[in-house]
Simulated assay, not measured.
Amino acid sequence: MDVTIRLSGLLASAAGYKRTTIEFGEGVTAGEVFMALGIPVSGDWVRISINGVLSDRKHVLKDGDEILYFPVGGGG
């Protein structure tokens, strides 16, 4: 199945791209996809949107899904 991956902010900088489409096997989760990208950052501060809806790492993906991984900002 094909999923479109979008990255923003520091994630895009670390990966070297903002958007790509990758083929994965059935039953893969959003968290497994993030780990497969090999971006050298802690996933603790990364949030996930799937087809425009906030989701979590356990969400099982379907063919054609679009995933946005984005860093959580903080202030202080």
Score class of each variant (00 low, 15 high):
A36W: 13
G43C: 05
R6S: 06
G52Q: 05
R19F: 00
I50S: 10
V28M: 07
A30G: 10
F34V: 02
S42K: 13
W45Q: 10
V60G: 03
T29Q: 13
E66V: 15
F70T: 01
G74H: 09
A15W: 06
Y17P: 01
G64S: 13
V60Y: 10
I48S: 06
V72Q: 15
Y17E: 13
R19I: 04
S49I: 00
V33L: 06
D2L: 06
K58C: 05
G9E: 04
Y17M: 13
D56W: 02
K58A: 14
T21F: 02
K18V: 09
S42H: 08
R47G: 09
I5T: 00
I39R: 07
L54H: 14
E66L: 05
E23V: 06
T21P: 02
W45N: 13
W45F: 14
S49C: 07
E32F: 02
V60R: 15
E66C: 08
L37F: 10
I5R: 01
Y17V: 02
L54E: 14
P40Q: 07
T21W: 01
G27Q: 10
T29K: 10
I50E: 09
L54V: 09
G27Y: 08
T21Q: 12
D63N: 15
V33D: 12
L7I: 00
T20V: 13
A36Y: 14
L61D: 09
G75C: 02
L10G: 12
D63C: 08
G64V: 03
S49N: 11
L10A: 06
G31C: 01
V41F: 12
S42C: 00
V46I: 15
I48Q: 09
D56S: 14
D56Q: 03
G43E: 13
E26W: 01
G64H: 11
G74M: 06
V28R: 04
V28L: 02
G25V: 08
R6C: 08
V60W: 11
L54Q: 10
G52A: 05
L11D: 03
F24D: 00
K58Y: 09
I48F: 11
A14I: 00
L7K: 00
E23M: 02
F70Y: 12
D44Y: 07
G43L: 04
A36P: 11
